[in-house]
């Protein structure tokens, strides 16, 4: 029995110690299309690589924008710049509150914002956030915080990818060409999409199935920002009326957010039409972004003055 336990422990110890090196070598040697659980390539539809590169040389900001694609596609820092507010959009693909918390703690000291706008799209409270975490570790510099997050996630692909990029820091990673899209990265973290419109569509009734840990992460974010005396505004950026109406338990979501901190739901507050102002079911097109940002900027300015 003793011999068996010692053998197992020895096997686990040796494999555990050499595992990160094996992951790194395997990632370098095996072609990307034969690598299932190690994503070795950089690049992202959300231009995270460009965003993190720019962030390295970015100074203090007045306003920090956080959230998923609803943030980096729909909240344009140029509108804030027009009224003298320096902002940075730290949104990323499918960013859930769990990733928001990591990014905020990572970059708060660097950006020193005194106002934070965080987009809260209900779908982000229904996801585990692995897709977003993968996007971050592939494009950001990986540190101990990401490693801890990877271990806690219990997702082998995320863990392997994090280990690979952690050891590969400082070496060049290949850029994946599939992320070359028509959209354009705008300084300040915004992604400008080519003007598109969608045809009318129908959706059957559905319910959001929320994950409690995402609300817990949101609580921690709010607590952290409050401890730094930063004002937080939660915004639910507009998405199509059809998508909005298809979820029947949206009121539960509103109720949960209202109790935390100031929250504005922009759905139904703007003259937006599904077939005119949206790129797809949940993202505004550039016409829609203009309409939305005018109101958002005035709201933020008002709240900044009030504070």
């Amino acid at each position: 029995m003793r011999k068996f336990i010692l053998s197992i422990l020895k096997f686990i110890l040796i494999l555990g110690l050499t595992y990160p090196i094996i992951v790194w070598v395997w990632g370098l040697v095996v072609p990307a299309k034969f690598n299932k659980n190690i994503d070795t390539e950089k690049g992202s539809y959300s231009f995270s690589d460009r965003r993190f590169n720019e962030l390295r040389n970015f100074g203090d900001v007045d306003l920090l924008i956080l959230g998923s694609s609803h943030a980096f596609i729909e909240i344009d820092p140029r509108f804030f710049e027009n009224v003298g507010i320096k902002s940075f959009n730290l949104g990323s693909s499918a960013q859930t509150p769990i990733q928001t918390e990591i990014l905020l703690k990572r970059y708060f000291k660097k950006l020193k914002p005194n106002f934070v706008v965080m987009d809260v799209f209900p779908r982000m409270f229904t996801m585990d956030g692995i897709e977003s975490s993968m996007d971050l570790v592939r494009n950001d510099s990986v540190g101990f915080d990401y490693l801890c997050h990877a271990v806690a996630s219990r997702n082998i692909k995320f863990l392997n990818t994090t280990l690979f990029h952690y050891l590969n820091n400082g070496f060049d990673s290949k850029y994946n060409n599939k992320y070359k899209v028509d959209n354009e990265y705008v300084s300040g973290g915004f992604v400008e999409e080519k003007l598109k419109r969608i045809k009318s569509f129908k959706l059957s009734e559905n319910q959001w199935e929320f994950i409690e840990s995402q609300f817990e992460a949101l609580d921690r974010i709010i607590g952290f920002l409050k401890s730094k005396s930063v004002t937080v505004l939660l915004v639910e950026s507009p998405y199509t009326k059809t998508l909005y109406a298809s979820y029947t338990n949206h009121d539960d979501f509103i109720e949960r957010l209202n109790s935390k901190v100031e929250y504005i739901n922009y759905n139904g507050q703007l003259p937006l039409e599904d077939t005119l102002h949206f790129n797809d079911q949940d993202h505004l097109n550039s016409d829609g972004v203009r309409i939305y940002n005018r109101l958002l900027v005035s709201d933020v300015v008002r709240k900044m003055k009030h504070n």
Partner: peptide
């Protein structure tokens, strides 16, 4: 033998479905 078992462990880790 142990190298072979390690190889199987690695295959599981690198190719298991997520």
């Amino acid at each position: 033998r142990r190298l072979f078992y390690s190889f199987i462990v690695l295959l599981i880790s690198f190719y298991m479905a997520t």
